[in-house]
Simulated scan of single mutants.
Amino acid sequence: MKTIAIIPARGGSKRIEGKNIQLLGEFPLIAHSILYAQKNSEIIDDIYVSTDDAEIKKTALQFGAKVIDRPVSISGDLEPTVSALKHALQMIGPDVENVVLLQATNPFRPQNLLREAFEKYKKEDADSLFTISRNHQKFGKIVNNKFQPFNYTFGQRSQDLEPLFFENGLLYISKVSLIQKDIIISENAIPFEVDHIFAHVDIDAPEDLEYAAFIYNKIDGKK
């Protein structure tokens, strides 16, 4: 039974035109996730891009991924990611056990992340795993025009905050049987903590792309 990577990448981005094929460093955005999957060939048997866009398809094929043509009916702004995964699996066939979901909008991942995460996923015989990072900010709400702290009290030091975490989107691993139930992360999913600057790169707006380019150039300059 196979472990495959699926990279959902629809067209029609509103904030960044042609977002998934915008250059980030020397490669189109989507290529970073394809190349990462290729570097983990000891785990990933095949790499698929699910898209409704001809230019994304062309780029994905150029970088060695297989392409699943996603129907327009499941390519809208409000369509959940699991719809693309389910459709891709229907097209691929029955010999897949695990899906590694790589989001094109999270282009950078620590080199050993997938290997370490997959080892834990297999060791604990989990049905799903997702990456998280600790938050170190002080949050609150505004109620009746007054600020109410949420995860701290006024005057409390940041280092004394109760640990809170966010889903950083770097990678997800799920059993096919779970995805077929319209679920990517189950209640029993393993949270895999990542303490890395890459966890804060998530491209949605133009300023996110600028930040990602800054990080890429900074890291590339150290090689």
Results as ranks from 00 to 15, higher is better:
1 M>V: 03
1 M>T: 03
5 A>V: 04
7 I>S: 02
10 R>W: 00
17 E>M: 02
19 K>W: 11
19 K>P: 10
20 N>M: 14
21 I>V: 14
22 Q>T: 12
26 E>I: 04
26 E>D: 15
32 H>F: 04
34 I>D: 10
35 L>I: 11
36 Y>S: 03
36 Y>H: 03
38 Q>A: 12
38 Q>W: 00
42 E>Q: 07
42 E>H: 13
44 I>Q: 14
46 D>Q: 13
48 Y>K: 00
57 K>D: 11
58 K>W: 07
61 L>N: 08
63 F>G: 07
64 G>D: 13
65 A>W: 11
69 D>H: 04
71 P>N: 03
73 S>R: 12
76 G>Q: 07
77 D>K: 09
79 E>L: 04
83 S>K: 15
85 L>A: 02
86 K>A: 12
87 H>V: 04
88 A>Y: 11
91 M>L: 10
92 I>L: 08
92 I>M: 08
93 G>R: 09
94 P>Q: 05
95 D>M: 09
95 D>P: 05
96 V>A: 05
98 N>F: 15
100 V>S: 11
107 P>Q: 01
107 P>F: 01
109 R>Y: 01
114 L>N: 07
115 R>K: 15
117 A>W: 06
117 A>E: 04
118 F>I: 04
126 A>N: 03
126 A>W: 04
128 S>H: 00
130 F>G: 10
132 I>L: 13
133 S>C: 09
133 S>V: 01
134 R>T: 00
136 H>K: 12
136 H>L: 07
138 K>N: 04
143 V>W: 11
149 P>G: 14
150 F>P: 04
151 N>Q: 09
155 G>P: 03
156 Q>R: 08
157 R>P: 03
159 Q>T: 04
163 P>A: 02
163 P>D: 04
172 Y>C: 03
173 I>M: 06
174 S>I: 01
176 V>D: 06
181 K>M: 04
184 I>R: 02
187 E>N: 01
188 N>P: 00
193 E>L: 08
193 E>C: 02
195 D>K: 15
195 D>M: 06
196 H>W: 09
200 H>R: 15
201 V>P: 10
205 A>Q: 15
210 E>R: 12
211 Y>P: 01
212 A>E: 07
214 F>E: 09
216 Y>M: 00
217 N>G: 00
218 K>C: 03
218 K>Q: 10
219 I>G: 01
219 I>T: 06
220 D>R: 13
223 K>M: 11
